[in-house]
Design a protein around this nucleic acid. Structure first.
Length: 894
RNA sequence: GGGCGGUUAGCUCAGUUGGUUUAGAGCGCCUGCCUUACAAGCAGGAGGUCACUGGUUCGAAUCCAGUACCGCCCACCA
C-alpha cells in the first residue's frame, strides 16, 4: 500500500521521533479499514460510550482533550478485549451560544440585528453557519485520535432528533408533567430569555444595605426598612414586620406611604421577617423577588412589575421610567437622601444572581413559561444510583447527585430564542391572525388545524441533550433496524464527563432514560477533574490563559498529549496544566520509538520472529522481564476496571522504561559489531509487541506505526483490533525475578562505588561477591551471570563464593547478607569509606530497632496476621545480617 | 448557613481494602558521561518530622474527631 512508505518513515536524519506524518497516515488507515465502526451484527458483547456532544460553536479545548483521551482509551481497550465498541459522536445545537455567535457575525459583517434579518431568514443563516463551521470541533477531535463511529454522528437538530424532542414534550404534557405557568422566572436582560435555576450562578459582591424611612399614612411617624435593591421599591405592595415584634405590633394593619411614588401600601405581619435583621421591617416587592413573591401570595398582595425585559424601569416607575435598573438605583438613593428619607447606608456583601452564559445580572420577572415537574422524574433516577445500578467514579459525586435530586425544583424549559427546538404547542388565532389566548392551546407535533400558530419560543438546549443516549440510537423510531440497534447498544456502559455538567446533563439524562426507556442510560459515570491553568484558575478567553490542544498536538504530538493528560488525571482531581507537562509524553514517545531500534535493526524485513523456547529455557533476564510483564498486565487490568487509567498507564510506563529499556534491552543488546541471535530477537519482538498493545489505547498512533514494523502483517491486521494481552501467569517466576533483582541491586551498588570514586563508568574493574554461606543456586547463578555484571557495570573479573575475603584496598557494598567488594588500588579513601559506612550503619540500626520493637511487642506478634509477622522477622534477619557485614567492613578499615 | 475537595521532596502531583512503603514519579538541582537505540538520553546522588492537635489500632500519609489555611458546590435571610 502506498501510504505504507510514509507511515513507516525511518528515523533517518533525525533521531527524534516525529509524530506529524505518522499520526495523519495512521488515522487515515483506521478510517479506511472501518475499524471505528460498531455493528451489532457481529454478535459480540457491546460496549457503548456516548460522547458528550460539544457545542457546534465550540473549538476543541483541553477539557475535551482530556475527556476524549479517556473515552478513546476505554473504547480502544474494550475493542481490543473483543467487545463491539461503539463510541458515539455528536454535536449539540447549543441554543443561546450558537444564536449569539451568528448574531454577532451578522452584526459585524452586515450591521444588521437578528430582528432586521427576521426569524426565518435568521434561522437559515444559523443553519448555513452550522454547515460551514459547525463540524470543526469534530474534525479537531480526529487529530487527537478519537476512534468514534463517525458514520453514526448525530446532531441535536437532526430531523429525527427533533422528532424525539417533540415526542418527549408531548408525552410529558400528556402525563401532566409539563405545564404552562405564570411565575417569577430568572430573566436574562442581555439574552432576553428566561433561564432555568441551574443556569444562574450566585456571586457574592460588595454592595450596600440602605435603610429607608417609609412614612406612616396616619402621619404618626415612619417605619424603617432595609434593602439591597432600592430600585425595586417602585414595585412595593406592602411592608412586612414580624407578628411578635413589640416595636411594630401596633402598626400591623395600618398603611405606610411608599416614598417617591406616594402610594399607600399595607403593613402586614409575616413570620418570614427576621426581627434582628436591619431595622426589623421588610419591604415587599412580589414582582421582583422570589421570597417577596411567596409572601405576597400568602397575603394576597398585588404583584407589580416595574422592570421590563431589557432591565429598564417601566411606566409603573413614574419618574424613573426608562432608566436602567442600576441607574434608577442611584437616582432613587439620591432622591431619598434629598427627602431626608435615607436613614443610613451600610456596606454589605450581597449575593447577585448572574447568567451562567452572558454573565449579566439576572432579574426575577413575572413571566409565562413552560415548566417540567421534576419530582416524579427524580425518584427513579435517585433509586437507580441508590441501589447501585448506576455507579459513580469517584463515588463521592453520589452525594452531590442525591442532594440535587432530593431538592429538585421544576424546570423552566422555554426560552425566548429563535435557534432551537420550537415548542410543539399551538394557539388559536383571532380574525386578525393574532394569538387568542383565551381559546387555549393544543399540544401537538403537527399543526392541529389550519390557522393555528405555533408557540414562538424554543426549548432549553438541555431539553434535547438529556435524551442523547437513546435519541442518538434512533428512539422513538420503531422500525426493526433501529429498534434492534437501540436494544443492543443501550443502556450504554460508561459516561465520561466533568462535574460541571452533573446537574445540567448527567442527572437529567438519567431521569430521561429511566422515564422514556425504563432503564438506566449508563452503568458507570466517570467524573473527571477540570483542567485549570498552572495557577489553578479556570481557563478562559478573557484571561487568555487557555492552552490550545491543537497547538500542543502540533508541538508534542497527539500521543504525547494523550499520555500526559492520562497520567495527570487522577481520581477526579482538577489538573493544573502547564504546556511543559507534555514533555513527559513526548519524551516517552521518543523513548518508545528509539527502543525499537535496539533490536529492530536486526529484524530482517518480512520475517516473522516467533519464540521457540519455553519459559524455562529462557535467560534469567528474559524470565525476569516476562514475569514483570505478566504481573504488570494483571495490575493494569485491575486498574482499568476501577477507571484508574493514570495508575495503569504509569505502570506500563515504568515497565517499558524502567525495566525493558534500562535493564532488559541493555543486557540483550549485542556488543559493537555483532548481531542479535534469532532466539533473543524473537523474545524482544514479543515483549515489545505486547507492550505496544498495552500502550495502544493511550498512545494509538505511535503504537500502530510500530506494530506494523514489528512483523509482517496481513491486511487489516492492526494493533487497534488486536487482542488485548492476557496476563500469562504460567510465564511468571517470582523466584527467578527476585534473583535478578538482587543482581540489579549489586550492579547498582558497584556503579555507585565507581561513581563515588570517580572511576569512569566505562572503565573495567574487578569485583568480588561474598555470600554468607552456601546459598543453594545463588552462587552458581551469580557466576553464570557474570556477563550481566560485565555488561552493566563493566566488571571484567567477577569472583563469587562464600567466605571470600575482602581484597585489599577495596570499597564494599552490603546488600542484605551479601557483600560486594570492589578493589580500587590506591583510590580508596579510607575516611570517606568510614563515613559512608557509619552513616549506613546508623540508618540500618534505626530501622532494626524499629523492627525489633515491633517484634518484641507481644500484641503485635499475637494480633497481626502471621504473614505480616513473618515479613517483619525476615526484615529483622536481613537487617541484622547486613549490619553485621557493615560493622565488619568498618572495623576492617581500622 | 450547610456540603465536598485539597494541604506529601524546591515545583507539579501519585500513593488502592491500614502492614512487602525504610513514602514514589515527572520536572528542577548536584556529579560524571555525546558509552553507535534514545542528550527528548545514560549512570550516580542530594532532597520529605506526609498542614497541625488529639484519638482508634499490635501497627496510621491512609481510619475517626477537632483546628488552620486554600479551592469548589449548594442555600430565599432583606
Amino acid at each position: 500500500m502506498e501510504t505504507q512508505a510514509t507511515k513507516q518513515a525511518e528515523p533517518g536524519a533525525s533521531k527524534a521521533y516525529d509524530p506529524s506524518e505518522i499520526e495523519r497516515a495512521w488515522y487515515q488507515y483506521w478510517q479506511d479499514n472501518g475499524f471505528f465502526r460498531a455493528d451489532r451484527a457481529t454478535g459480540k458483547k457491546p460496549h457503548t460510550i456516548m460522547m458528550p456532544p460539544p457545542n457546534v460553536t465550540g473549538a476543541l479545548h483541553m477539557g475535551h482533550a482530556l475527556q476524549d483521551t479517556i473515552q478513546d482509551a476505554l473504547t480502544r481497550i474494550r475493542r481490543m478485549q473483543g467487545r463491539e465498541a461503539l463510541w458515539m459522536p455528536g454535536k449539540d445545537h447549543a441554543g443561546i451560544a450558537t444564536q449569539n455567535v451568528v448574531e454577532r457575525t451578522i452584526k459585524k459583517q452586515e450591521g444588521l440585528s437578528r430582528h432586521d434579518v427576521g426569524r426565518e431568514a435568521f434561522i437559515d443563516r444559523v443553519w448555513e453557519w452550522v454547515d460551514e463551521y459547525g463540524g470543526r470541533i469534530l474534525q479537531q477531535k480526529r487529530r487527537l485520535g478519537d476512534s468514534c463511529d463517525w458514520d453514526r454522528e448525530r446532531f441535536t437538530m437532526d430531523e429525527r432528533y427533533v422528532h424525539a424532542v417533540q415526542r418527549v414534550f408531548v408525552q410529558l404534557y400528556e402525563e401532566g408533567l409539563i405545564y404552562r405557568g405564570h411565575y417569577l422566572v430568572n430573566w436574562c436582560p442581555v439574552d432576553h430569555t428566561a433561564l432555568s435555576d441551574e443556569e444562574v450562578d450566585n456571586v457574592e459582591r460588595d454592595g450596600h444595605l440602605w435603610y429607608i424611612k417609609y412614612p406612616l399614612a396616619d402621619d404618626s411617624g415612619h417605619l424603617t426598612i432595609a434593602t439591597t435593591r432600592p430600585e425595586t421599591m417602585l414595585g412595593d405592595t406592602a411592608v412586612a414586620v414580624h407578628p411578635d415584634d413589640e416595636r411594630y405590633k401596633h402598626l400591623i394593619g395600618k398603611n405606610a406611604i411608599l416614598p417617591l411614588l406616594n402610594r399607600e401600601i399595607p403593613i402586614i405581619a409575616d413570620e418570614y421577617v427576621k426581627m434582628e435583621f436591619g431595622a426589623g421591617a421588610l419591604k415587599i416587592t412580589p414582582g421582583h423577588d422570589k421570597n417577596d413573591y411567596e409572601i405576597g401570595k400568602r397575603h394576597d398582595l398585588e404583584v407589580l412589575s416595574v422592570i421590563s425585559t431589557d432591565a429598564t424601569i417601566n411606566e409603573e416607575g413614574g419618574p424613573y421610567a426608562g432608566l436602567d435598573r442600576f441607574d434608577a438605583r442611584e437616582k432613587i438613593v439620591e432622591d431619598l437622601e434629598a427627602l431626608g428619607l435615607l436613614e443610613k447606608t451600610e456596606p454589605y456583601k450581597v449575593s447577585v444572581p448572574i447568567s451562567h452564559r452572558s454573565k449579566a445580572v439576572i432579574e426575577p420577572l413575572l413571566s409565562r413559561q413552560w415548566f417540567v415537574e421534576m419530582k416524579p422524574l427524580a425518584e427513579p433516577a435517585l433509586e437507580a444510583v441508590r441501589d447501585g445500578r448506576i455507579r459513580f467514579f469517584p463515588k463521592r459525586w453520589e452525594n452531590e447527585y442525591f442532594r440535587w435530586l432530593e431538592n429538585i425544583r421544576d424546570w423552566c424549559i422555554s426560552r425566548q430564542l429563535w435557534w432551537g427546538h420550537r415548542i410543539p404547542v399551538w394557539y388559536y388565532t383571532d380574525e386578525n391572525g393574532e394569538i387568542d389566548e383565551a381559546r387555549g392551546f393544543v399540544v401537538s407535533i403537527e399543526q392541529p388545524e389550519p390557522g393555528m400558530v405555533q408557540d414562538n419560543d424554543v426549548l432549553d438546549t438541555w431539553f434535547s441533550s438529556w435524551l442523547f443516549p437513546f435519541a442518538t440510537l434512533g428512539w422513538p423510531e420503531k422500525d426493526d433496524n433501529t429498534q434492534r440497534d437501540l436494544d443492543y447498544f443501550h443502556p450504554t456502559d460508561v459516561l465520561v464527563s466533568g462535574y460541571d455538567i452533573l446537574f445540567f446533563w448527567i442527572a437529567r439524562m438519567i431521569m430521561a432514560s429511566m422515564h422514556f426507556m425504563g432503564e438506566i442510560p449508563y452503568r458507570d459515570i466517570f467524573i473527571t477533574g477540570m483542567i485549570k491553568d498552572k495557577l489553578g484558575r479556570w481557563m478562559s478567553k478573557s484571561l487568555g490563559n487557555g492552552i490550545d490542544p491543537l497547538e500542543m498536538i502540533e508541538q508534542y504530538g497527539a500521543d504525547a498529549v494523550r499520555f500526559s493528560l492520562t497520567v495527570l488525571c487522577a481520581q477526579g482531581q482538577d489538573i493544573k496544566l502547564d504546556p511543559s507537562r507534555f514533555e513527559m509524553g513526548r519524551n516517552f514517545a521518543n523513548k518508545i520509538w528509539n527502543a525499537f531500534n535496539v533490536f529492530g535493526r536486526f529484524v530482517e524485513p518480512g520475517k516473522d520472529y516467533r519464540r521457540r523456547r519455553s519459559f524455562d529455557e529462557l535467560e534469567l533476564v528474559e524470565q525476569w522481564m516476562l514475569t514483570r510483564l505478566n504481573r504488570t498486565i494483571e495490575a493494569v487490568d485491575a486498574d482499568i476496571e476501577r477507571y484508574r487509567l493514570n495508575e495503569a498507564l504509569t505502570k506500563i510506563y515504568t515497565l517499558f522504561w524502567g525495566d525493558y529499556c534500562d535493564w532488559y534491552l541493555e543486557l540483550i543488546k549485542p556488543p559493537y559489531g555483532e548481531t542479535m541471535d534469532e532466539d533473543t530477537l524473537a523474545l524482544a519482538v514479543e515483549l515489545y509487541e505486547t507492550m505496544v498493545q498495552l500502550l495502544h489505547p493511550f498512545m494509538p498512533f505511535i503504537t500502530e506505526a510500530l506494530w506494523h514494523r514489528l512483523r509482517p502483517r496481513a491486511d487489516g491486521e492492526a494493533c487497534i483490533v488486536s487482542a488485548w494481552p492476557a496476563a500469562n501467569t504460567a510465564e511468571a517466576n517470582d523466584r527467578a525475578a527476585a534473583t535478578f533483582s538482587l543482581m540489579q541491586e549489586m550492579i547498582s551498588g558497584i556503579r555507585n562505588v565507581k561513581s563515588r570514586y570517580g572511576v569512569a563508568p566505562g572503565k573495567e574493574i574487578a569485583a568480588t561477591i561474598n555470600l554468607p554461606r552456601e546459598t543453594d543456586g545463588l552462587e552458581a547463578a551469580l557466576q553464570e551471570h557474570a556477563p550481566y555484571f560485565a555488561r552493566l557495570a563493566r566488571v571484567a573479573d567477577l569472583t563469587v563464593g562464600s567466605g571470600q575475603p575482602k581484597p585489599a584496598a577495596s570499597a564494599s557494598v552490603v546488600i542484605r547478607e551479601h557483600e560486594v567488594f570492589v578493589p580500587l588500588s590506591g583510590m580508596v579513601d579510607l575516611d570517606h569509606e568510614r563515613e559512608r559506612l557509619s552513616k549506613e550503619i546508623k540508618q540500618k540500626e534505626k530501622f532494626l530497632v524499629g523492627v525489633q520493637r515491633k517484634l518484641q511487642n507481644e500484641q503485635f506478634v499475637s494480633r497481626a496476621p502471621a504473614e505480616v509477622v513473618e515479613r517483619e522477622r525476615q526484615k529483622e534477619r536481613d537487617a541484622t545480617a547486613e549490619l553485621r557485614r557493615l560493622r565488619a567492613n568498618l572495623e576492617d578499615l581500622g
